[in-house]
Design a protein around this nucleic acid. Structure first.
Length: 221
DNA sequence: GCGACAG
DNA sequence: ATCTTGTCGC
């Protein structure tokens, strides 16, 4: 597969790959290990990619990998994956514990063409994946105030208005996070996994740890 | 032309 | 994402 260098090619690739996404969980899907992926920027084109693998039940860290790289693709909302995918895949390659689920820092199906970073990572690796974003790409009614409350995330697209994800309250009263399916998992299961990964803070431990390592990498040597 | 716009 | 101090609250 040719990695796109232009906006047109990138969009064309998303349009082509979107048909590969599977939005249901395998009957025997077991999530014992979960990987958190994130990218930090030292400059406009110098980045650090991180992949952290946690034991899903105990939330104990099993492995962490940090890799530095450069990026050529600019940041364009909607084409986010082309900027961060390369580094993330390198980090994922070096992890010694196979993750059963990938948690991306961004959107999955909650994307203009229904193919955000999480879908990209999932389809590319074949590993179930979900997107957990801090900001929404779409509309939603505020979920109830209690942890676990959720509401539909809707968005207009090529085929009209769709429910593309969910606004999920991970802690009482905090701003919700935006969960969407990446690949090989259903939305209910995705939300359940996010809640399990966020027992104490707004963001899942996976993204919190990945984010810490990412910033540590770009700010030191 | 103007505003929106994951990280 | 990144540039950045103190401050309010549990």
């Amino acid at each position: 597969m040719e990695w796109p260098r232009t906006v047109e090619d990138a969009i064309a690739l998303q349009e082509r790959l979107r048909t590969q996404v599977i939005t249901i969980s395998a009957p025997d899907l077991r999530v014992d290990t979960v990987a958190g992926l994130d990218v930090g920027y030292r400059s406009n084109d110098t980045v650090a990619g991180v992949c952290v693998v946690f034991d899903a039940k105990s939330l104990v860290i099993l492995d962490e990998v940090v890799v530095e790289d450069t990026t050529d693709f600019p940041y364009i909302a909607g084409l986010f994956a082309f900027r961060e995918m390369p580094v993330l895949l390198r980090a994922l390659d070096q992890v010694t514990v196979a993750p059963d689920l990938l948690v991306a820092d961004g959107q999955g199906l909650a994307h203009p063409r229904r193919f955000g970073l999480a879908c990209h990572l999932g389809v590319h690796t074949g590993i179930p994946s979900i997107g957990v974003a801090k900001n929404a790409m779409g509309e939603f009614d505020p979920p109830g105030r209690a942890r676990g409350s959720m509401s539909d995330l809707v968005m207009d697209g090529p085929r009209g208005r769709d429910v593309v994800g969910r606004a999920l309250r991970t802690q009482d009263g905090v701003k919700p996070v935006f969960v969407s399916v990446g690949h090989k998992i259903d939305l209910d299961r995705a939300c359940a996994e996010v809640l399990r990964l966020a027992p104490r803070y707004r963001l899942p431990e996976t993204t919190r740890r990945a984010d810490t390592l990412t910033k540590q990498a770009v700010s030191s040597g």
